[in-house]
C-alpha cells in the first residue's frame, strides 16, 4: 500500500479527521483534486472494507470517521473542481432510505457517503419512507437499485411492502432491492424472508453490492429482450 494510504488509514483508526483532511488537501494541491478519489480514497476504502471483513475489531466508529473524511474530501474536491474536469465517474442513479417507521439514520447515511465516493448519484429519501415513495422516485429518476435500511425486525418486515409494490408494478428484476441494517446481521434468514435481492453487512461494501445489482438489472433486460 502506498505511503499516503497507510497514513490515511492510521488517521482513520485514530479518528483524526483534521489530520486526514490536511493530508488529503496537501496531496491534492500537489497532484490535482481530480485524482484524489480514484487514486487515494477509493483504494483506501477498499482496503478498509477488506480489513473489516477479516477483522472483528474494525468498529462502526472507524468507518464513521472514514465516512466523514470522505464527505470532507468530496466537498473539497467539488470546491476545487475545474469546470471541465469530471472528478467522479457517474454511476446510477439509485434511491436509498430507511423504510416506513424506521428512524435509525446512521447506517443509511454512511451507505450514502460510500456510494457517492464510488461515483454513484444517490437520491436519499431520509427516514420513514413508504414503499410507494421508494418506487415512485425510482421510476421517476430511472433508478435500477433501491436500498432500504432497517434496524428493527418489525420495521424490516415493512420492506416486504416494497417487494410487493415492485411486483405489483412489474418492476421486480428491473429494479433491484438492496437491504441492510443492524437487524439483518443478527437475523440471517430475514433477508430472504422479506424478498431482498442482496445485502451487505457494512456501508463500505455497499458500492460493490450496488455494482452487482445494477449489473443484474441490466442482465435481466438482455434476457427478456
Amino acid at each position: 500500500m502506498e505511503n499516503i494510504q497507510s497514513r490515511l488509514l492510521e488517521m482513520i483508526q485514530k479518528a483524526d479527521r483534521q489530520g486526514a483532511n490536511n493530508l488529503l488537501a496537501a496531496w491534492s494541491e500537489e497532484h490535482g483534486y481530480e485524482k484524489l478519489l480514484k487514486q487515494i480514497l477509493i483504494p483506501t476504502l477498499q482496503h478498509i472494507g477488506e480489513e473489516w471483513r477479516t477483522s472483528e475489531n474494525f468498529s462502526i466508529a472507524q468507518s464513521y470517521v472514514a465516512a466523514k473524511i470522505v464527505e470532507d474530501a468530496l466537498f473539497m474536491t467539488l470546491k476545487n473542481k475545474k469546470d471541465n474536469v469530471n472528478t467522479v465517474s457517474e454511476k446510477g442513479p439509485v434511491v436509498i432510505g430507511n423504510i416506513e417507521d424506521d428512524f435509525h439514520s446512521l447506517g443509511r447515511r454512511m451507505v450514502k457517503t460510500f456510494l457517492e465516493a464510488d461515483g454513484w448519484i444517490v437520491y436519499d429519501l431520509g427516514n420513514d419512507v413508504t414503499a410507494e415513495e421508494f418506487v415512485d422516485t425510482a421510476v421517476e429518476i430511472g433508478a435500477r437499485v433501491i436500498g432500504a435500511s432497517a434496524m428493527m425486525k418489525t420495521t424490516a418486515y415493512n420492506i416486504k411492502k416494497l417487494r410487493k409494490e415492485l411486483d405489483r408494478r412489474n418492476l421486480s428484476g428491473h429494479i433491484q432491492l438492496a437491504v441492510g441494517g443492524a437487524v439483518f446481521m443478527v437475523s440471517p434468514n430475514l433477508e430472504k424472508e422479506i424478498g431482498s435481492d442482496g445485502s451487505s453487512s457494512t456501508a463500505i461494501d455497499a458500492p460493490e453490492l450496488f455494482d452487482e445489482l445494477w449489473e443484474a438489472s441490466l442482465q435481466q433486460e438482455t434476457v427478456h429482450e
Binding site: Q13, K14, A15, E56, N57, S59, I60, A61, Q62
Partner: peptide, 10 residues
C-alpha cells in the same frame, strides 16, 4: 463499550 461500535482506546 462494544468493539463493534468503538475502538479500544476510546
Amino acid at each position: 463499550a462494544s468493539p463493534a461500535i468503538l475502538p479500544r482506546n476510546l
